[in-house]
Design a protein around this nucleic acid. Structure first.
Lengths: 197, 197
DNA sequence: AGCGTAGCCATACGATCGTATGGTCGTCCA
DNA sequence: TGGACGACCATACGATCGTATGGCTACGCT
């Protein structure tokens, strides 16, 4: 069994750690090298420029995100359960998930002013919305196509907003409350009329 | 009638322009000075340090935001109309409002890694949620206190998420669609049962 | 008239940045 | 055995950064 993580992945993990700790402006070749315990030249050897390093770091979080998402979808449960699992993954509650939320915030802000980052972000978020729409359409076959699209967009925006709030304003929006609000929203979405038992 | 904007406000506007154009890492004393057409010393004269300059810029957008919000509340319309107006202000659609959304994204990302920024952001967003809760409670006197709080938190998260999406992903979430989705959400919130006419 | 001060500028200092260059190991293959 | 090559390091270069310093002008007050 060979290692799945090479030395360059170690560097990328250090980049992500620095991103979480100090944001985008806290990243420099020297700091990444120091955090990884290697020389400046080592970083340059694996990544020709700073832009390449950052692009690789963005790819890495995308890949980790996709893996987590796939793991949540895999078990073959019913669409409602999968939808709840995916939503739970996206709100990203829990102290150990905060780094992921912070990185998403930093990346989104960068996407707003840096076109290459924006392209990656757009492609990825479109895929997430498509996934949500697919799950909603399966769980609610009574909904028209446009209504499904609307529900997916609203759900994704809600999850984004809550994830950011949990990461930055834990007093106003504690993690468990965000989870409860998502559950409430999904209850209404998946079981709209609630006639009786 | 004296001017309400002094020379330091001109500098702050340049800071905000740079923030929108290149994000937080695009800001330096020299660039702000160049954008304003003054010397480095002039910037230093009005703001002792870079941190003070950025803090003042954050205060300025907070103040502009509050002013816009107050203007939307002023007319003395009914709570439902005010709620729709405030929500419209927060989603920040329209091409001319994109700079405001970008600044919010940059500021939020900074709040995630910079405690002083986080404190300002938390205080402000708590006030916004309080305002939304007050409007919702007035428009829906049948709701319990906790339900009002939940609706306010969900609404604010939804508006945040949609504003970011409109600013970064105009293809997936065009401005008019975001407005329509907000309107749909508020329709359901303000007129929950829709029994008949 | 004289002086303080606000407003602004030119310049300099030290630090840090991204990147380029050249060297030193080890390993592997011909 | 020897040379090509990948991995890594030490160092240097030019640019840009935040900040400090000192000087110059114009105005207000006494």
């Amino acid at each position: 069994m060979h290692d799945v993580t090479g030395p360059s992945d170690r560097l990328l993990d250090c980049v992500l750690d620095l991103l979480v700790a100090e944001g985008y402006e806290g990243i420099s070749i020297r700091r990444v090298a120091a955090a990884a315990g290697v020389s400046i030249g080592a970083v340059q050897h694996h990544f020709a420029t700073k832009d390449a390093l950052l692009a690789a770091a963005m790819d890495r979080i995308s890949q980790q995100f996709q893996e987590r998402l796939d793991r949540r979808i895999a078990p073959g449960a019913g669409p409602p359960e999968v939808l709840r699992a995916v939503a739970d993954e996206l709100v990203s509650t829990g102290a150990e998930r905060r780094p992921a939320s912070v990185i998403w915030l930093v990346r989104m802000a960068r996407a707003a002013v840096h076109e290459p980052t924006a392209e990656v972000h757009r492609r990825e978020w479109q895929q997430v919305e498509d996934l949500l729409a697919l799950l909603i359409a399966t769980a609610r076959p009574d909904l028209a196509e446009q209504a499904v699209r609307d529900e997916a967009t609203v759900l994704l925006a809600l999850l984004d907003g809550l994830a950011g709030a949990v990461a930055v304003e834990p007093a106003r929006v504690p993690a468990d409350r965000a989870e409860a609000l998502v559950a409430r929203h999904l209850d209404a979405l998946l079981d709209p009329v609630r006639p009786s038992a």
